[in-house]
């Protein structure tokens, strides 16, 4: 089938402002949006630029706005969009070129919340730190994050408030706060209780809708709010 793509273009070497390029491409309905972008780049316009790697929704490279919604181009099939598709870069990040955005601040927010296991007690040689299947299940959902940025750039709070750490950073803090092996919850909760933290969230659910991994992002943020209010470190 023939599909018409409108793609937002911006090359800082020559453009003063973004513009839309139009491309017609022959694809199968079961092709991915990423396949169509590759066809355009490879056979029509070699300057079209977007990040991509695994092409099946696991590396998090190709988050972009597809018909106005944050999606991974490799997880969306043409047949679900029809014959007119508009592609734009994620909102709220500086555009480096075309669909490629600057993710340095995004990763800086992530690092703020100490996204690594904190436990100073020796773990013992030749054995694991014990954890029950139930304890493991508590933070299962937030281990799925691939840091694509779809949730954070879907959140209207992050568009207007530079200080807000954003949903992705909070999701990764959640993954450790509720890990029974971790001892750093208080330090992370202190940051999350500050003006850059969870209280900025207005439960708009854009993040949850945008997450290509199906993580219940808003729920995770609400669990942290509840822990801050009650001091109870059990999210449910």
């Amino acid at each position: 089938m023939q599909v018409q793509f409108r793609i937002e273009r911006f090359n800082p070497d020559q453009d003063t402002k973004p513009w839309f390029g139009e491309y017609t491409v022959e694809v199968e309905p079961t092709d991915r949006v990423l396949d169509a972008l590759n066809l355009i780049k490879w056979h029509q316009d070699g300057t079209l630029t977007f990040r991509r790697s695994c092409a099946h929704g696991i590396c998090g490279s190709d988050a972009m706005r597809i018909n106005g919604r944050n999606r991974l181009a490799c997880k969306e099939l043409i047949r679900d969009y029809g014959d007119k598709i508009t592609i734009e870069p994620m909102l709220g990040f500086r555009v480096i070129k075309d669909l490629v955005v600057d993710m340095e601040d995004f990763f800086a927010s992530y690092r703020t919340l100490q996204p690594y296991l904190i436990n100073d007690e020796p773990a013992g040689v030749g054995r694991e730190r014990p954890q029950s299947p139930e304890e493991r299940e508590v933070f299962d959902d937030t281990t799925k994050c691939i840091m694509c940025g779809a949730c954070t750039t879907a959140c209207p709070i992050t568009w207007t408030n530079e200080d807000f750490l954003g949903p992705a950073a909070i999701v990764n803090a959640h993954r450790f706060i509720y890990d029974s092996r971790d001892q750093g919850a208080n330090e992370r909760l202190e940051v999350l209780n500050s003006k850059s933290g969870v209280w900025r969230c207005r439960t708009i659910f854009n993040c949850t809708e945008a997450c290509p991994r199906g993580i219940q992002v808003t729920r995770a943020i609400e669990q942290i709010k509840r822990t801050l209010l009650t001091g109870d470190n059990n999210p449910d």
Binding site: Y116, L117, A123, E128, R129, P130, Q131, S132, P133, E135, R136, F139, D140, T143, F176, D179, R181, D182
Partner: peptide, 15 residues
């Protein structure tokens, strides 16, 4: 595991 990798667990808490 000590670095924090969340392995699935057996009922008695092992990997």
């Amino acid at each position: 595991e000590h670095m924090g990798l969340p392995f699935n667990r057996t009922p008695d808490g092992k990997i």
